[in-house]
Design a protein around this nucleic acid. Sequence first.
DNA 1: TAAAAAATTTAGGTGAGACTAAATTTTTCC
DNA 2: GGAAAAATTTAGTCTCACCTAAATTTTTTA
Lengths: 249, 249
Amino acid sequence: MTEAVGLSASLEDYLEAIYNIIKEKSAVRAKDIAAKLQVSNASVTGALKALAKRDFLNYAPYDVITLTPKGEKLAREIVRRHQVLKDFFVKVLAIDEDEANKTACKLEHGISPEIINRLVQFIEFIDVCPLGGDKLIEGFKRHLECGVDSNNCEHCLDMARGLVAASNQAHKVQKKTLVKLKAGARGLIRGIRTKGPLKKRLSEMGLTPGSVVEVERVAPMGDPIEVKVRGYHLSLRKEDAEKIEVEVR
Amino acid sequence: MTEAVGLSASLEDYLEAIYNIIKEKSAVRAKDIAAKLQVSNASVTGALKALAKRDFLNYAPYDVITLTPKGEKLAREIVRRHQVLKDFFVKVLAIDEDEANKTACKLEHGISPEIINRLVQFIEFIDVCPLGGDKLIEGFKRHLECGVDSNNCEHCLDMARGLVAASNQAHKVQKKTLVKLKAGARGLIRGIRTKGPLKKRLSEMGLTPGSVVEVERVAPMGDPIEVKVRGYHLSLRKEDAEKIEVEVR
DNA sequence: TAAAAAATTTAGGTGAGACTAAATTTTTCC
DNA sequence: GGAAAAATTTAGTCTCACCTAAATTTTTTA
């Protein structure tokens, strides 16, 4: 007799839609729900029955639809998750509102309260911390404006140099190949000394001039070398790593 | 003839699991996949067929399982999404590794490349920006250590005061009730001047001493007042807002 | 107020993705 | 090399969440 495990993502969507429609228009019609969720009217009926059976809403065929206290509470929670995610995307990551909403819709299910709360704290913290504040986010936005091709933007390169500097000891700028870096060190990629298919392959992995590469582990004989670039974990052969010119300091 | 819409979350999970098992042990057995994803062996067979049909892996009954180039590429992409999310949770939000992994698993489907890239940029930016850097994240962690009851921690209160200050004009600390705040202003809640069910209700909405409340909109006659606290959007009646003491400056 | 229009529900399917149980193939080990 | 064990696949169900088409109820309007 295990019940009450929580709602499926789909039913959460229905509950959220109902909550939002009530807020906007105070009356909920099945048609509106169908329109908002882009499903057929028949599907809505099914969902309403499922939600009613679990006591999230009051519903009888052809009757008005209202949320139960339990339903209202959960709906509010879902809306909050959505809002927090959207806020983070818009305010911190500078994603446009549309995309932020779309993604929030997809992620809002299955994110723990713990992480949502952290996110709220983080957004507030960024706002307020003497080290952060609006300046931080403004700086980030400026940084973003340089576009993807960060190898052509001195501002971005300076950023990246700072990132590199943070993890190393020496203070003079040096050029090396990737094989010379020790585990934990970071380098700014300035060139790929090869061409043809190999160059293409390396590029596809994210190893392009302007991006920062972090050495994670080096195998006993220096081969292979595990690195991280742009979120990808890669294992490079020594001979390939030798082709990659990096700047360190 | 619309094909190639992308994989379902479930199939992405299988692909990811296969990729990870290959990395660890170089041979993939259906049993391992089943164990990793906590599904029955029979379910694995079904998924393998589905993935093979779409050319993500090479598979024939009782034969060895290998990824096609297409499968490998997508798998790498999925693993990257997972990794980026996990990094963000662990490094920025200071979530423990276990929880970070679990949540990354749930969110890694249906997050756009755009947002993933922004996250990478943001994590790198935080690391490097003169205004940010490790100090920012250390500060955030210290902030978190104060626990949930931020009303008892001077450090947190100072943070919150800073947050409040950022949105207001006056520079002297003042105590007011929430009704006195204009749209856009933030206040630090210092007390709730009521008790019983109303106090409980307000608390449940997140209106507790120590948290920051932001006024979003005030209706013509000052009633109701729309506010945001801890990610929740609330609509408060004027008479309730009068019960809430806030500190502004 | 009754016929037409609109909204909603029921009935009957489909496909994805899981399961159990039984059959089959591969591997291990005596 | 063959029997026992292990792994894998097949067969047959189940639930969820969607669909279309037809029936029913409510609302509108002439």
